[in-house]
Design a protein around this nucleic acid. Structure first.
Length: 316
DNA sequence: AATCGTGTCAACCGCAATGGT
DNA sequence: TACCATTGCGGTTGACACGAT
């Protein structure tokens, strides 16, 4: 007999959230801040389970979430972070604070996986034509896998340092690059006033019932906008975050040396071993060192890179 | 115009981790 | 230390949109 689902109670609503529910949730969080999700349904009267409330907040209503197309930089970062961390979407999302783990996961599953599969297919074609890895590379594999596990901690440390510019105004100062979630911001950072919520509701009512179907993006943007109004305009926030995003990507690029990578470029593909493939997907990463060996092997065992790591470690 | 197939993404489910007692 | 409650995370599902036929 399995454990009953947490939302298997009578009277607990499931399915898409309505704008009214969103407003109730946002106004509650504005007042109390996120956390103590258990209390949210009882205190707000929402017929949702605590999990659902938390999910709605973190994936949709939380201020600062960027929606829409992923930029080229974001795409590259996701690809390489996925290669580095495996399917640890929350950890990956911590490097892209404007994106939720759910968004990144969806984007990976719907776009990037296909893209990389195509690349992989292309590369396999090449391999059959005599461009596969050399024998020595295969022989060395066991050696460098072991060495990789022992060195990975150091490499990660260097990576974290490289990605943690000490900028007081940076969104990234709140990050925990080792994979932790950012701490919840104080309540004052959220929806600025009940007036705004009232305006939002008014706007929604005016646009009619049909709107509720397509409400998601616009309402969420409005919520986000008002949510950060106290500290920064949302545009400013996005600009700063975009800038940081770019800086972060550049840091990555300089670290990994994949500046020339793009979807049509085989540089990335060539650095990978066909037997492991480009995709981490179905494989469980090595605990504590979930690294697709193929992607960073060159970097880790490149002497120059090692010197760089040593330099960073010493500097630390 | 109707039907079918495919892609996208918000939301759910279940397990793991964590914290409190 | 053990147990329970709560939260976090990743995999998966299902509804909807949209293009092709």
């Amino acid at each position: 007999m399995g454990r009953p689902p947490c939302c298997d109670k009578i009277g607990v609503k499931k399915g898409p959230w309505t704008p009214e529910e969103d407003i109730i949730l946002v106004s509650y969080i504005q007042e109390h801040g996120p956390g103590n999700w258990r209390a949210v349904p009882t205190n707000t009267g929402l017929l949702r389970c605590s999990k659902s409330c938390r999910l709605r907040w973190t994936n949709y209503l939380r201020p600062g979430i960027k929606r829409g197309n992923f930029t080229h930089h974001e795409e590259k970062m996701i690809i390489h972070l996925q290669a580095l961390l495996g399917n640890r979407w929350a950890a990956i999302a911590s490097y892209l604070p404007q994106r939720t783990d759910n968004d990144i996961k969806n984007y990976w599953n719907t776009h990037l996986k296909k893209k990389l599969k195509k690349l992989q297919a292309g590369q396999e074609g090449q391999s059959r034509d005599g461009l596969s890895v050399t024998g020595s590379q295969q022989i060395c594999r066991g050696q460098w896998e072991r060495r990789l596990q022992t060195d990975i901690h150091m490499a990660r440390q260097a990576l974290c340092e490289a990605l943690s510019p000490e900028k007081p105004d940076s969104l990234f100062t709140e990050l925990k690059p080792s994979g932790g979630y950012e701490k919840p911001a104080p309540a004052s950072l959220y929806a600025s006033s009940t007036e705004n919520i009232a305006k939002l509701l008014k706007g929604w009512m005016r646009s009619g019932p049909k709107q509720s179907l397509t409400y998601s993006t616009t309402t969420q943007n409005s919520l986000n906008n008002m949510a950060v109004a106290d500290s920064l305009s949302s545009e400013e926030t996005l600009n700063r975050a975009d800038k940081n995003d770019t800086e972060l990507s550049e840091a990555f690029e300089s670290l990994f040396g994949f500046d020339s990578f793009d979807s049509s470029n085989s540089d990335f593909s060539q650095s990978t071993s066909p037997d492991t493939g480009l995709l981490q997907e179905e494989s469980k990463p090595i605990p504590g060192a979930q690294v697709p060996l193929s992607v960073i092997e060159r970097w880790l065992f490149d002497e120059g890179a090692m010197q760089g790591i040593e330099y960073l470690s010493e500097a630390h």
